[in-house]
């Protein structure tokens, strides 16, 4: 699903965000990427979302590599992804249900199934009652849940969650992590970046540590 070989990323201002990253993720895997702020976690997710492209090395996502300007293939890739953003990226002025459905409107999901998927996803994150609430009236934690529900409804092959527990209290953060872990199945891999290592449940199968753009350790 993800195959990175000696991938480095340098931004135009000269900042080196990632150095010689080697990473392989298979379908059904759950991977935590940890490290302090500025260690390159978000940069790695940006590479995986084709928002940035490797300066050196090769990166294959879902069996192919992507380059700048390949608008069509990049959009196709993104339709298979389930991104959970730090700032949620929910559309203001729209309800929770509308936001979830918006993530599906351009996928090959029949119109009749869209609402069903969205309602089920809302129920799964425990916010069925908030379906018709505009997102600006929801709390931080509820917004994070809605952004996860948007991912769940899309039924993606790869979930990429960028600091999903940031700014949440311990209880809410654990709930969010539990939700994301629950998204993993035989087909779907989940990558979660977090600096809050103390929240990672024990006996997780993969934790990758990044420090100053270098992959320090990878444990199976």
């Amino acid at each position: 699903m993800i195959a990175a070989k000696n991938v480095s990323l340098q931004y135009p201002d000269g900042t080196v965000a990632l150095k010689n990253i080697n990473l392989s993720v298979k379908p059904g895997e759950l991977v935590y990427i940890t490290g302090p702020s500025g260690s390159g976690k978000t940069s790695l997710l940006k590479l995986l979302m084709a928002m940035e492209f490797p300066t050196t090395g090769t990166l294959e996502i879902m069996g192919r590599s992507y380059g700048k300007g390949q608008t069509g293939p990049i959009r196709q890739l993104r339709r298979m992804l389930g991104p959970v953003f730090q700032d949620f990226k929910l559309i203001k002025g729209r309800t929770a249900l509308e936001n979830i459905m918006l993530g599906m409107r351009f996928l090959d999901i029949p119109a009749s199934e869209m609402k069903k998927n969205a309602t089920e996803a809302l129920a799964r994150v425990g916010l069925k009652k908030k379906a018709n609430t505009p997102v600006e009236n929801l709390s931080w934690g509820e917004c994070q849940r809605i952004s996860i529900a948007r991912v769940l409804a899309r039924k993606p092959l790869l979930i990429l969650a960028d600091e999903p527990t940031g700014n949440l209290d311990r209880e809410n953060a654990l709930n969010i992590l539990e939700l994301l872990v629950g998204c993993k199945d035989e087909q779907t891999a989940v990558l979660i970046t977090t600096h809050a290592t103390h929240l990672i449940p024990a006996n997780q199968n993969r934790i990758i540590r990044l420090k100053e753009g270098v992959m320090e350790e990878a444990e199976a």
Binding site: M51, R75, R78, R79, K89, I91, F106, L107
Partner: peptide, 16 residues
């Protein structure tokens, strides 16, 4: 612009 960027990140085609 913000909404358009979100849609782009979710893979929405230009026509949509």
């Amino acid at each position: 612009r913000e909404q358009i960027n979100t849609l782009l990140l979710l893979g929405a085609p230009d026509s949509f």
